[in-house]
């Protein structure tokens, strides 16, 4: 039987950089020009199958980027195994914002969190304000994964999630799950590391095939 992993992934970044669009592309392979902006956090799942048949299921939290709701963001990135911090390549200010998020994650999130920096709206390269070199250099300095995407064309989207899926099982040493739903006890269902409160005795729950 193939291996199965489950990880919690959170999307962060300034409002309107295309976080929700990225998720929609990744989960449903769709793109909407007119999406209502999220005031809150949306939950979605998507499974990636790697070449070795390992299945990685992402539990994705797409959060609101607005400053006003910033105090709630830690609730969504705590226990996250990975974070995709998005900026818009046509807005240099959005990279600044991304840096702030990354600093916050480095300070406050789980230390083993895998962080990917993602430059979105690559289809609009004519209006580019952030060069690939600049972003890449920053990512290397901070030890982050990096990639450019276009939620609109689909370019680079699955690549970045697949890259994360490949990296995670190695770093995060998650517990294996034979399936299951969101319905399980909170925390227990979140694979990967949960340094906060989950005692190791939760193992028995995870085998449940419900």
């Amino acid at each position: 039987m193939s291996k199965q992993f489950q990880f919690k992934l959170v999307l962060l970044g300034e409002s309107a950089v295309g976080k929700s669009s990225l998720v929609l592309r990744f989960v449903k392979d769709q793109f909407d020009d007119y999406r209502e902006s999220t005031i809150g956090a949306a939950f979605l799942t998507q499974t990636v199958t790697l070449e070795d048949q390992t299945m990685v299921k992402f539990e994705i939290w797409d959060t609101a980027g607005q400053e006003r709701y910033k105090s709630l963001a830690p609730m969504y990135y705590r226990n996250a195994n990975c974070a995709v911090v998005v900026y818009d390549i046509t807005q240099s200010a959005s990279l600044e914002k991304a840096r702030t998020w990354i600093r916050e994650l480095q300070r406050q999130a789980d230390p083993s969190i895998v962080i990917a920096l993602c430059g979105n709206k690559a289809d609009l390269s004519a209006r580019r304000q952030v060069t690939q070199e600049e972003a890449k250099k920053y990512a290397e300095e901070e030890g982050l994964m990096w990639g450019e995407t276009s939620a609109k064309s689909g370019e680079g989207v699955s690549d970045i999630f697949t890259a994360i899926a490949k990296k995670l099982p190695l770093t995060a040493a998650p517990s294996q799950r034979a399936g299951g739903t969101r319905g399980a006890a909170p925390g227990a269902a979140r694979a990967g590391v949960d340094l906060n409160k989950q005692p190791s005795t939760q193992g028995s729950n995870e085998a449940c095939n419900c």
Binding site: L72, G183, P186
Partner: peptide
């Protein structure tokens, strides 16, 4: 209802 919080939905089905 099941214990839940921001980012940690409880047992939604139940």
């Amino acid at each position: 209802l099941s214990p839940a919080s921001a980012g940690l939905p409880g047992d939604d089905i139940a």
